[in-house]
Simulated scan of single mutants.
Amino acid sequence: MNPPRRWLLKAASVAALFAAFPASAQPYPSRPVTMIVPASAGGPTDAIARVMSERMTANLGGTVLVDNVAGAAGSIGVGKVARSAPDGYTLGIGQWSHYVLNGATYALQYDLLADFAPVALIVTGPLLIVSRKDLPANNLSELVAWLKANPDKATAGTGGIGTPGHISGIFFQRMTGTSFQFVPYRGTAPALRDLLAGQIDIMLDQASNVLPQLNAGAIKGFAVTAKERLASAPQVPTVAEAGLPDLLVSVWHGLWAPKGTPTDIIAKLNAAVVKSLGEAATKEKLAALGQDIPPADQLTPQALGAWQKAEIEKWWPIVKEAGIKAE
């Protein structure tokens, strides 16, 4: 016996209704979220991303996967985020270089402010001014004096043109009236190896990269570019204590989504970040990487947007005045 026509029409109407709104009935997230790291595995940004993805998986209620998309100082990975669907399933974690400095050194195919929706500032990490073990200076004042006595002879290793170590090195030169040669490497790991071998003289590098060698006594540490000493390296004075109070540099990390991502999804992602950063285990892991967690009022999407804009206004003129361009 065939079903009545009225029943068939009703069934068709219900089916059409569900077909018209397939996503709205599904809570977010209903499938894995990808967090793009615009750097290779094993580096500082990757290490922070691994900590956050693990805790956000627990606090977001869905799996957060890490995808390393390296190349062109991070601009390839950040570009992939910009071109992704604004549905909350592709996020970008990155640092000062990726979401600020690259805009001054690369001809980007995206706008660092207009094409992204800020989610949250995650951590701030100062740099450490370090040198080879046998360099004849024992504090920052002596290092500056030695550099002035040897103009253009000293060498500073960096992770490449336009990277944090390079830009902060130029900032250091401007503040101290010194002049030395920059030696670009394919990342800070090989630069650190040459510093250990005595092939280069100094580096300004992220704490997470140099702390093991510094605490082992294999290199010298002169100052940390922050207002407070690092808990993981309390023997190293701040730049203010060392005589250069304005040499404040932070390689901070944040989380972004593509422009147009719904505000309720941004709010849910932000809540997962904030909850993760409030956990004792997360704090311990990030502290071991030389990272500081910002105060609660700096963890909002609006705060990240304002901070990123302020950093662009501060650093782009410095980069452009130095004539730094990606090769």
Rank of each mutant, 00 (worst) to 15 (best):
P44I: 07
P44W: 06
T45M: 09
T45S: 01
D46P: 01
D46V: 12
A47C: 09
A47N: 05
A47H: 14
A47M: 14
A47G: 06
A47Y: 08
I48E: 12
I48Q: 04
A49I: 06
A49F: 14
R50M: 07
V51T: 15
M52D: 13
S53Q: 12
S53H: 11
S53K: 08
E54A: 05
E54H: 13
E54L: 06
R55Q: 09
R55K: 10
R55V: 08
R55I: 06
M56L: 08
M56H: 08
T57S: 06
T57M: 08
T57E: 13
T57A: 05
T57V: 03
A58N: 10
N59S: 12
N59H: 09
L60A: 03
L60K: 04
L60E: 08
L60V: 02
G62W: 08
T63E: 10
V64W: 07
V64K: 09
V64R: 11
L65D: 15
L65C: 06
L65P: 12
V66T: 11
V66Q: 06
D67K: 03
V69P: 10
V69W: 02
V69A: 04
A70R: 03
A70W: 03
G71E: 04
G71A: 14
A72L: 10
A72C: 02
A73H: 12
A73Q: 07
A73L: 09
G74W: 02
G74Q: 01
S75P: 01
S75W: 00
S75Y: 00
G77T: 01
G77H: 05
G77P: 02
G77E: 01
G77I: 10
V78I: 15
V78T: 05
V78K: 10
G79P: 11
G79D: 08
K80N: 04
V81Y: 07
